[in-house]
Design a binder for these strands. Structure first.
Lengths: 277, 277
DNA sequence: TTGACAAATGACCCGTTAGTCATTAGTATA
DNA sequence: TATACTAATGACTAACGGGTCATTTGTCAA
């Protein structure tokens, strides 16, 4: 195991227990059996560590779910599988789930907040695509409410995994939530989260990322990934960011190229926002 | 306005914006236009301040809801009024709601965590009583699931008030959630949160409070309240804690006496747990 | 064995902050 | 005015934690 992995693993335990700010670098290094200096050979700062943790787990989590939704061909199984996988992940990585909940609204770092929001948005997009696929005609105006309810179920029931160590019947849970979701999809008539409201939220949250910030993220990502179609696509997108020359379909295609790559999700998200997709 | 109130008000603004740990006492006193020393004349520590804030708002909030549920005589209006009042409170005290969400899982202070849990429990009890009253026959085994769903709705939709400043249509929201809740009550058949599971949770969370801790809270509460039936009842309960002499019905009656008093809610909760009610 | 390079160490620096306390300002009473 | 008392001040302390860097330890090829 690399030093970096060791630190991430041990730090996660401490963060889950005490929270990020209450855990000192000294504690982490003691817990790893290394020196303080060694820590700074692996991470530039304490902030970089938690960002790495968030990145590592959330990309894994969101990609998992996204893949599941896209690869499940039988509609009738989709919702059940979705819930099952969600809670299985929470169960498996309960330390990370704890950190996520504890620090979700922390305002210590601008980059952190924007990142959390974006992962939330990605999850929401995945859920929305699922809802549209399963209930397209039935739900009509209430589809965003259904997304909200699903997120509410996830929030509420995931607390069980985090605060109690009792082993829980995942299959029953997934069945139970599937039934509830189907019922809401079938019978709900009063929409609250309308399309206009969603539009409004989007505008409010997207107007603060600057060109330079996106460039910074792209540079970072380019360093992280190997030569590949994705890397070339990202390079072209960087060009496009500096001086637009390509047509919109071409840009969209490039975005599609980088989207599946785990390391590119963050850059892809920012670029989608920037180019308006 | 007393110095204490001034500090609480101004501190709340800063906490909502920056979080508790990120806000220094110096900042608070600057924002109040007083000196650092003056702060420590009103509060023994920074921790005491946030505990006071939590106490002040959550007792207000939970008593409000509790009163509403008990005083609404027309069943058909109850659920709507419940949701309306909940979100109206969130809307009105959005600064506090922000703090609550930001610090909800903070582990900086043991007392803080236990307190938060207890308020959550009180809320849950109120919701459960409402569910039992409205749907007693229909829901059967699924009543705890319904409580979970209601809490999930509250969690999810309250984020709207906290992160977006858009004015929202409270009436529509309450109607929309009422419909959803009624649907779930009527049609859901698969229970997940069973009675045994609830029992298990209760055991897990109640086995850590010591006799001395409860005594400490009682002493504190006695100092805070005026001479009254409540005070006398609490004194008797303190006696009973030291050496049991009274019958269970008498103890239960004393608990009922102190329950409605805002300052006694915390002591009442601990004593209920201790005496097994 | 030596020398060169990388890996790791931990004492130290520096900024920050909760909390204290000697001192001062303000006020009411004799 | 003098005295006594309370309210308020802010410089100060002690502790802590993030981050640095001169120094040591380990490794491997010549």
């Amino acid at each position: 195991m690399s030093k970096k992995q060791l630190i991430m693993e041990k730090a996660l335990e401490l963060f889950a227990d005490q929270g990020f700010e209450a855990t000192s670098v000294q504690q982490i290094t003691d817990h790893c059996g290394i020196s303080k200096g060694a820590f700074y050979l692996s991470f530039k700062s304490k902030d970089e560590l938690i960002l790495a943790l968030i990145d590592y787990f959330t990309t894994q989590f969101t990609s998992n779910i996204d893949y599941l939704v896209k690869s499940t061909t039988i509609d009738s199984e989709l919702l059940y599988k979705f819930y099952y996988t969600v809670f299985e992940s929470f169960n498996k990585h309960s330390d990370f789930a704890k950190v996520l909940i504890k620090e979700q609204m922390r305002s210590f770092n601008k980059e952190f907040i924007v990142k959390m929001r974006s992962y939330d948005k990605m999850m929401e997009d995945t859920i929305l695509s699922m809802v549209e696929r399963l209930y397209d005609e039935e739900v009509g105006q209430t589809k965003h409410d259904l997304v909200f309810c699903i997120k509410g179920f996830m929030k509420m029931y995931s607390e069980l995994f985090i605060f109690y160590n009792t082993p829980l019947d995942l299959e029953l849970l997934a069945h139970s939530l599937t039934e509830k979701t189907n019922l809401l999809a079938k019978y709900v008539t009063i929409p609250f989260v309308s399309n206009e409201l969603v539009q409004q939220f989007k505008q409010q949250s997207c107007n603060e990322v600057t060109n330079e910030q996106i460039l910074g993220v792209i540079e970072q990502t380019l360093d992280d990934i190997e030569d590949s179609i994705e890397k070339e696509s990202l390079l072209l997108l960087k060009q496009e960011l500096l001086e637009p020359t390509l047509s919109r379909p071409l840009v969209k295609g490039l975005l599609e190229n980088i989207q599946p790559h785990p390391h590119c999700k963050w850059a892809a998200y920012l670029l989608r926002g920037y180019f308006g997709f």
